[in-house]
């Protein structure tokens, strides 16, 4: 408010007209950029409603009537999409649950207690936060092979317990919002440490847990590299692997309406969920500070 008032008084060169021009320019650019972001999904939607023969005639900007037909064809086709959807959902939900709960626990350990290795642990977790999983995947594959977890979704879920980036977010959130006096009060009331964590700390951390659960879910949902190396059976594969299969199949012989429908099937649910939760997601990015 203050700043705006100052602008009009002091900014004599910054006259109303020039601000007006700049505003128009920025709106035009923003609209262009938004168009560039949405255009692909618009084409995807249009093409998912058109039949193979219509698609071969070239592009039209108007949707056609074959949406349901493409969907039934895809559903009854060779790609196990419902299996894929279910596998993706199970893995993503469990990953999000484990990553947030245990990261909150790890962050609480460092936030609420004083012990010798505290500083060292914190520094260590921060230092390894940015190391990508790809560089250890060779050893990881050999290890799960020995453990009998090859071709098993558990190999993708359990490691989420150690998620340094989620931990970092939780720790920052605790630093700013979790007063230790509450923990003390619980102790005086005779609550055990584990119970305090579950019944007082976790509910207080709900906003942070929600934001990180969304991000962990999306990361796991979209993950292609590791699942493609771990899961081999058709019935265990996740959606990104099925997309890759579609790509490596002789796709020209495919019914293109089905191909577009398959892509739409993996993209649109996320868009819908995003539009519902966008406020939390966009706000959560800034709070996180660090995201891979």
């Amino acid at each position: 408010m203050d700043l705006a008032a100052n602008t009009t008084i002091a900014g004599k060169q910054d006259t109303g007209a020039s601000v007006h021009v700049r505003r128009v320019v920025s709106y035009v650019v923003l609209i262009l950029i938004s168009f560039l972001c949405l255009f692909w999904f618009y084409v995807l939607f249009i093409n998912a409603t058109r039949s193979n023969s219509e698609l071969s005639l070239g592009f039209t900007p108007v949707p056609s009537t074959h949406f349901v037909e493409n969907w039934t064809n895809l559903k009854n086709g060779t790609l196990p999409i419902f299996n894929g959807l279910l596998n993706s959902l199970i893995i993503a939900i469990l990953t999000a649950g484990l990553a947030t709960y245990f990261s909150a626990m790890t962050a609480y350990a460092i936030h609420a207690y004083d012990f010798k290795l505290k500083k060292l642990m914190f520094t260590f977790i921060l230092a390894i936060m940015m190391i990508p999983t790809q560089v250890t995947v060779l050893g990881f594959l050999q290890l799960i092979g020995k453990m009998g977890l090859d071709n098993n979704a558990a190999a993708l879920i359990v490691p989420a317990i150690a998620s340094p980036a989620v931990f970092f977010y939780m720790k920052q959130y605790m630093d700013s919002t979790l007063p230790l006096s509450l923990v003390e009060a619980a102790r005086i009331d005779g609550s055990g440490e584990f119970r305090t964590f579950n019944q007082i700390v976790v509910p207080l951390m709900k906003p942070a847990i929600a934001v990180q659960a969304i991000f962990s879910f999306v990361n796991s949902w979209n993950n292609y590299f590791t699942p493609a190396l771990v899961l081999h059976d058709d019935t265990k594969k996740t959606l990104p692997i099925l997309i890759a299969q579609l790509r490596s199949a002789d796709w020209l012989k495919f019914d293109m309406g089905q191909v577009y429908m398959m892509i739409a099937f993996s993209i649109f649910p996320v868009i819908v969920v995003y539009l519902i939760l966008s406020k939390h997601i966009v706000g959560g990015v800034t709070l996180g500070g660090v995201k891979g």
Binding site: A109, I110, M121, E193, F197
Partner: peptide, 9 residues
């Protein structure tokens, strides 16, 4: 308990 809570990670 700091150590105990760090065990899973």
């Amino acid at each position: 308990w700091g150590y105990i809570f760090l065990i899973p990670f």
